[in-house]
Design a protein around this nucleic acid. Structure first.
Length: 421
RNA sequence: GUGGGUGUAGCUCAGUUGGUGGUAGCACCUGGUUGUGGCCCAGGAGGUCGUGGGUUCAAGUCCCAUCACUCACCCCA
């Protein structure tokens, strides 16, 4: 029986991994422009951490976590909880009143895989801890937009406010009353939601529910004064930074901890998985996890989704990988001479390849061509006897004779010069 | 957890009413050039037709089961 990877788990093989590196490189570039520092956390945490942060009643905690039951530890289903745990544990709030952190890595959720959704998936997670300032909300969204634009994916930004513990319960009641009136016209899922998470009825995909919900009360009109002021300030900030966005009173978020600002970067090109990035404010969460009473806001980008979008955009990304020099040794004697020389070239910093299979020169030339080598150094029995090797420039097809020096270091520095000029 | 679709070479796919697995394309190897790449030409290698049963003289093809993949629902990045 052939062994294959687990369902929902994927290898990222050469040819594809370059795109991932590209996404990460762009992210690190943009995030550092915004003064973010990287943090890396372990993948395993105590189960309780996620139960407390994400919410006991959410699907993620109820049935999607990879948990070692006997040890009460869980592979993280998202990054925010772990990041906050590290923030609290190391007292990062004392070192700096406002922390701007990001992390990149795998997350695990036992859901049924589909397009843009795997059981092991990768997120880039960005968090700002220690400031309630609505400008930061706008700044974060602007950074996300800048990153996605730099990558070259087109998305739309949608924003909403979910209020705070002062105003959301009131809205919840108003909404429940509205739902109760037309319960018979909603889908089964929505009837269930009305008891588990009424806000979720607002973003049901069912067209009939959408129709019903059209007239539903808007949370944006039920915010308390503080939340309303925060909400308008965020919008003002986005306007100042010239970030395109639209308000979506139906957008709610799945995780319990969100307060006030929530947002999503949405694409039409990924089927059911519309969100390539999403997040929001979570002002009570750090305290809830036993940390200082500090507000926070953050968002996550789904890397699989970004990579899919990039793959769709340009069918074949031209392979730019290139090596400096291919050393072709012909015959056993030459191979023996060439073997340590190649090592010196690598020590000197040249990307160097050679063949170990004793293949013909023609075959080795083909390999060199495939590797996109800048130069090929040809050394066979003849060259060894005459003390002259051939250096071929693959682009210009020009060849020149190089004196073979028994001192590999001298030979290497000569080749360095030739190859790098 | 629920529903639909698909499983043939490393990849993309042909395969007729059941009648011997394809000179198919890409990729790989060798040769055409005593020791010189891309293009071209010739040749080669590569398969338990997802797996296990069943029907039949005969199954890649029909039936059942199972596994995997995939899309969607739920949920979510």
């Amino acid at each position: 029986m052939k062994i294959s990877a687990l369902n929902g788990f994927k290898d990222i093989i050469p040819g594809e991994v370059e795109l991932w590196q590209h996404v990460e490189n762009v992210a690190r570039d943009i995030f550092s422009r915004f003064n973010f520092s990287e943090i890396r956390m372990p993948i395993l945490e105590k189960t309780d951490l996620f139960a407390r942060s994400i919410g006991e009643a959410t699907d993620i905690v109820e049935k999607e976590m990879y948990t070692f039951i006997d040890k009460q530890i869980t592979m993280r289903p998202e990054a925010t909880a772990s990041l906050l745990r590290a923030y609290i544990q190391h007292g990062l709030h004392v070192q700096k009143p406002v922390q701007r952190l990001f992390t990149i890595g795998p997350m695990f959720r036992h859901e049924r895989p589909q397009k843009g959704r795997l059981r092991q998936f990768h997120q880039m997670d960005v968090e700002v801890l220690g400031t309630p300032n609505p400008r930061v909300d706008a700044e974060l969204m602007a950074m996300g937009a800048m990153f996605l634009e730099k990558l070259g994916v087109t998305v739309s930004l949608e924003m909403n406010s979910l209020g705070c513990p002062a105003c959301r319960p009131g809205f919840r009641e108003t909404l429940l009353a509205f739902i109760e009136e037309r319960k018979d016209k909603l889908c089964d899922d929505c009837v269930r939601r009305s008891t588990t998470n009424p806000l979720r009825v607002l973003d049901c995909k069912n067209p009939k529910c959408r129709e019903q919900v059209e007239e539903a009360p808007s949370i944006q009109e039920h915010l308390c004064d503080d939340c309303a002021e925060h909400f308008t300030s965020v919008q003002k900030g986005l306007d100042q930074l010239k970030v395109d966005y639209s308000l979506n009173k139906f957008m709610v978020r799945g995780l319990d901890y969100y307060t006030r600002t929530t947002f999503e970067f949405i694409t039409k090109d990924l089927g059911a998985q519309a969100a390539v990035g999403a997040g929001g404010r979570y002002d009570g969460l750090v305290e809830k996890l036993g940390g200082p009473k500090v507000p926070g806001i953050g968002f996550a980008l789904g890397m699989e989704r970004l990579v899919l979008l990039l793959q769709q955009k340009e069918e074949q990304k031209t392979d730019n990988s290139k090596i400096d020099i291919f050393v072709a040794g012909l015959g056993e004697k030459a191979s023996e001479f060439v073997f340590p020389l190649v090592h010196i070239l690598r020590q000197q910093g040249l990307q160097t390849a050679m063949d170990h299979e004793g293949r013909s020169l023609k075959s080795q030339m083909k390999q060199a061509n495939k590797l996109n080598a800048g130069y090929v150094l040809i050394i066979g029995e003849n060259e060894l006897e005459q003390g002259q090797a051939v250096l071929r420039n693959m682009a210009t097809q020009e060849q020149q004779e190089i004196t073979i020096d028994s001192d590999n270091m001298k030979m290497a520095s000569l080749l360095m010069k030739k190859c790098r000029q």
